[in-house]
Design a protein around this nucleic acid. Sequence first.
DNA 1: GCCGTTTTCGGCCCGACTGTTTTCAGTCG
Length: 580
Amino acid sequence: MTAYPTNHDIAEVFSAIADLMEILDEDRFRVQAYRRAGDVIRHLPAPLATYRARGELEQIPGVGKAIAEKIGELLDTGELPYYNRLREKVPPGVRELLRVPGIGPRTAGRLYRELGITSLAELKVAAEAGRLAALKGFGAKTIDSILQGISAAERQERRMLLAHAIDSAEALINALRAAVPALSQAAYAGSLRRGRPTVGDLDILAAADDAPAVVRAFTMLPLVARVESAGDEKASILLHNGMQADLIAVPPGMWGSALQHFTGSKAHNIHFRELALAQGLSFSEHGFRRADGTLLTCATEEEVYAAIGLPWIPPELREDEGEFEAARAGTLPCLVELSDIRADLHLHSTWSDGRADIRTMAEAARTRGYSHIAITDHSAYMGMTHGLDAERLRAQRQEIAALNAEYAARGIPFRILHGVEVDITPEGNLALPDDVLAELDIVVASAHIQLRQSPEAATERLIRAVRNPHVDIIGHPVGRMLGSRDGAPVDIDALAYAAAEHRVLLEVNSGPHRLDLDGAAVRRALASGAVITINSDAHHPDNLAWMRFGVVTARRGWAGAAQVANTWSDEALQEWLSRR
DNA sequence: GCCGTTTTCGGCCCGACTGTTTTCAGTCG
């Protein structure tokens, strides 16, 4: 473990504990407790060290006295004796057997105890040598499916980006609609509908009077490479592009309950069903089962939530992180919508590393109905070969002024703000002098290099930038790249307090690899009084469409339109910035 | 191990699908 155990590191320990306990067949509710703690910690907006410093560890849902103590041990020593004792009972390699689809904790435990298998490689050898057949209950089909599962696990199937998942899901739905004209409704659900930054598999829901026929048609689509399982209402398939997709088909009258069930999250559904049970209703994807055995079906999600006395909850909020309490109290937020967006305040052009000139980018923005944009090319700094210095910024200013004059002359209500994306050095200085920044309409300050800093250094770096009187936006604040690097361990609360005090906007960068800030951080930042801006960071006119991913991310952070500066008019933005 | 509009003790969501079974356990979402 690194010098600063990240939330991710610690979450991984608790997930591993849950897996090992489950393999050892320990109490399933204790297993569940560790698993939940791992999941919650993995998505926390601030470093665990920050929670502990404030004595707030036990306020984290799913973290009680015992787990809080273990977090403390991990933060202080990077070690956890309890975890080490488990690893002595079950070699860590046994855990990787769980990655094989179809192998769960019971099977993994038996493979270890009865055959001494302690890794994927050993499992493969044993399966190919026919040694698995010696186990009671292991028939030819089971062994065959394990062999297939091993190759799937070996392919290291990664979670896919939200943007790619949406493309595939929409293609799949279109294909299904074409194959089944009688389809009354079809939609994607799951983590994709909740807008998570990455998605493990596609969950497709379809409604038709003859549901089994829809399942059959689904499994026969040309996009399908292999059928994993198929019944009367569900099927699981592998697409040629490597993605896995699940379908649920229901009669139209059950659309609401099925959509709710299949959208999740798991934690949200468990909480929902507990609330239903408290009212004498047992809920499943088929509807509500009353105490007398009768079934209450729901054609819409609104009916599902209404049945237990709640308003409809937007999918982006369904993580069991307070949405039920807010729904009951009538305080659910009115979330920002893509149609609220009037500006994009972080765009590049061929003046630095963009692929289109300023006019092209501006016209793309006008096509989207925006009223203003900011052109924010890179400052000259280490590694940025085409970055702008003071002289080129002045030349760029003239080009933008000419374009604005042209729009005004043609009576077009559209304005281009002249900005820059200036680098924040590791110490928190800016790569351009103050007098140059003072000439610009708007300044985005971003860190691009040396992101592996201590929590203190990473936070101080950004806060120093916030305190610069010319900085208006902190771009992609933590600097994560999905699938390749974690973000800097920034204390979001501290950053947001400073941003609120100095009237600096925190960015939700909509780039499919970034989505930074993420939803949890947005929520935390808004709670601290900060205002955000959702920007595409487009380097090509097509990239302006990324805005939808940023909006979904902000919605996951409970953001309303008023808290998003690029939903404001140009005049309102100017007034807000000028009052710094 | 966590948690509280039934509870500080006694609960902890629900059902489809599969394979190998004569009635069900394991896995998955």
